[in-house]
Structure formats: C-alpha cells, structure tokens
Design a protein around this nucleic acid. Structure first.
Lengths: 106, 106
DNA sequence: CCATAAGTTCAATAACTATTGAACAATAGA
DNA sequence: TCTATTGTTCAATAGTTATTGAACTTATGG
C-alpha cells in the first residue's frame, strides 16, 4: 500500500479535467465537505457513496489536481488543493463552492 | 425549421450540466468567442469544428442553459446567457473565461 | 419555381463514465 | 502472530460522449 500516488503539478492542472471532476455531484459534495473540515480520510466519506466508488471518485479528484491525498498508516488523508486551484484558475473554486452550498445547505 | 428550441429557465439551470458543458474545450472556445462578439451564427463557428459536430455542441450549450439560440430566417443566432449564468452561479463564468483567455490568447 | 445556403437528423462508431461485488493488500494494535 | 480496519484492484455492466458522413429540411433570393 506504499504506492506513489500521482498528483499533477500546478502548471499541469488542466481546466477540462478540473471542470470534468467538478461536474459530478458526488465529487462536488466531497470537495465541499473537505473544504469545510480541511482534511479527512476516505472512510469518513462513506455517506457520499460506496467504498469502491469512493476510491474511483477520489482518484478522479486527485488526478485532476483538485485534491491532494497523503498516506498516513493504513489510511489516506485527503484535502482540497484550494490554493493551487486558486492560483491556476482564480475565482473558479469559490464560485462552485458557493453554488454547492446554496443548493445543498447544511 | 421553425421548431421550438428548448432553453431552461434560470432556476432550472443545473450546475452539473453547466460544468459538463464547459468541460469540453471546443465548447469553451465557442463560449469565449461568443462572449467577445456578443452574438453570431452557427456557420461562423466552422473554425471550431465540423458543421454536424457544431450542431451537437451548440445543442449541449443551449440545453445546459449556457447559451441562447434564436432563429432568424434560415440561420440561428447564438449568444451567451452571461447575465443568467451570473445570477445563478456568481463568478463562475468570468473565472472560466479568464482561464480560457489565459490558455488561448488571441 | 429552382438553386443555394444554413442547419438538422440519423445511424454508426470508439471511447469513456459511474457503479457494483468479490477478492486482495497493507497497516496497526491486541 | 492474529485480526480487524482501511482502502485498492479487477472485471463486468449499462449508459453517455464526441465524432463522422450521408441524407434531409427550411428559408431566401433570383
């Protein structure tokens, strides 16, 4: 399980990939949740989807550059690369998070 | 050809649909172009893709609520629903257009 | 009415998406 | 060392996406 996880460099973060990643409601919920709590494990996101499916969605978020996953023991701690995304695409993430909160309060 | 074209009401514009529509580079180019010129016909967008494919992409933009298409004689005039999108998802479209211009100057 | 210009529809295609369950791997703690 | 916890990999599936060419429709102008 000590595999290296791929993360694109800031300059390699692609707008199509980011918008694609954020076009899925489950992934937006995950990103909104992580934005609130800062960092959390895959297991804490079980309300959002099945374990297998979470692996898939979290990989898409990570590979697009939206999130960062670091390995700590048997679990993965995931966080939103808010500063990186803001640097690359100013205003994008805030506007999407605002929309998510408006649509899905609480 | 005097068919009624579907356009979602402002309140029905869905974030997933909008992000999905804008996750495609061809469609982003179209939106960026239309944002500059204000309104133009399908035919003027031939540099972006084939005629058939443009019908497809323009339908996706229209059905997601990103653009409006009005019929004038034998042609369709398309424009970006900038104010509607701004009202529904503040800041979203400007941030994406900024990114498009930065990636694709000229 | 006829020709042309502007777009659409249709069927086909190859590629990708989200989702599932079963089996597996890796770590930490008793 | 055994075991529970955490998450991954794999194969399968049903649905969607972007793209194409051929045939069609509709409106305008001569």
């Amino acid at each position: 399980m000590a595999k290296e996880l791929f993360h694109p460099d800031i300059d390699q973060i692609d707008l199509s990939a980011v918008l694609d990643a954020l076009s899925d409601p489950t992934r937006r919920e995950i990103v909104a949740y992580l934005s609130e709590v800062g960092e959390d494990s895959c297991g804490s996101m079980s309300p959002f989807s099945s374990k297998t499916n979470l692996t898939y969605h979290l990989a898409r978020l990570r590979e697009s550059g939206v999130t960062r996953t670091r390995i700590e023991g048997p679990r993965r701690l995931i966080s939103v690369r808010a500063a990186d995304i803001e640097q690359r695409f100013p205003g994008l993430l805030p506007s999407i998070l605002t929309a998510v909160r408006a649509a899905d309060p609480g």
